[in-house]
């Protein structure tokens, strides 16, 4: 009977931490972007929307390669982080978070944007006639109405980060307990022909993810019915 090695468990724990941090950050960053994209009539709506969707275009390892260039000692961002005293991001956990936030951005922004767009002007205008400030209307009207969008966004952002492989492989450097996430660990097992270990880890990830998604969807549909 094959059981998980400490390295496998460390990789799973790291994946969960990365996905949680990434999802929380993406909800914080993605919500204002989605709000702006949903409401604006500015000429910039098209270009910004396209930029948010861009990470879908490049193969992940290629995206990872360009991030490596950008965040590296010769890259624009790398020079800035060094200048700011933050050091270099590649091969660190914060580097993985930055890469994952960029890579999973469209999966979070688009569902929220769609939900905001579906609300339309009327509920917000009604709130304004009741003297709600724009901020109050946003939190008391728009966010509750867009709840399903937020839940979808959180699920997609989390799941996509857990399953992400190419980008973390390039930016992470596969350092145990720092950047070696579960998807990389599974790949290592498969490449090393340790199929039993790979099956265990992959099976565990699939079952775990299924249970988390099931719980979220069930909760969401129950909340809807109420």
């Amino acid at each position: 009977m094959i059981s998980p090695t400490p390295a496998d468990l460390a990789a799973i724990w790291l994946s969960l931490r990365l996905a949680t941090v990434t999802t929380v950050l993406l909800l914080l960053i993605g919500t204002p972007i989605a709000w702006w994209l949903a409401r604006t009539r500015s000429w910039w709506k098209g270009p910004l929307g396209a930029v948010v969707a861009l990470p879908l275009v490049l193969p992940p390892t290629v995206l990872g390669f360009y991030l490596l260039l950008l965040l590296g000692p010769e890259g624009m961002v790398g020079r800035f982080t060094q200048w700011a005293g933050l050091g270099l991001l590649p091969f660190t956990f914060p580097g993985l978070v930055v890469a994952s936030v960029l890579y999973s951005m469209p999966f979070v922004v688009q569902p929220i944007q769609n939900a905001f767009e579906a609300i339309g002007e009327k509920p917000l205008e009604a709130a304004a006639t009741l003297r709600a400030t724009p901020l109050d209307a946003f939190f008391s009207v728009a966010v509750p109405l867009a709840r399903p969008g937020f839940i979808t966004a959180a699920i997609l952002g989390f799941a996509h980060t857990v399953g992400e492989f190419g980008v973390v492989l390039m930016i992470g450097g596969n350092i145990p307990e720092q950047t070696r996430v579960a998807s990389v660990q599974i790949y290592d097992h498969v490449e090393a022909l340790e199929y039993a270990q790979a099956h265990w880890l992959a099976g565990g990830m699939v079952v775990f993810s299924f249970l988390v998604l099931l719980a979220l969807y069930t909760l969401n549909s129950r909340a809807h019915r109420r």
Binding site: F65, L68, L71, G72, P73, M170, G173, N174, I175, D188
Partner: peptide, 20 residues
């Protein structure tokens, strides 16, 4: 101080981009 690549092509990229 190791950073591990999946293959030598990636090991090369880590160095060529100046990150290692």
């Amino acid at each position: 101080r190791f950073v591990q690549a999946e293959n030598i092509a990636q090991a090369y990229q880590f160095i060529a981009t100046g990150n290692a």
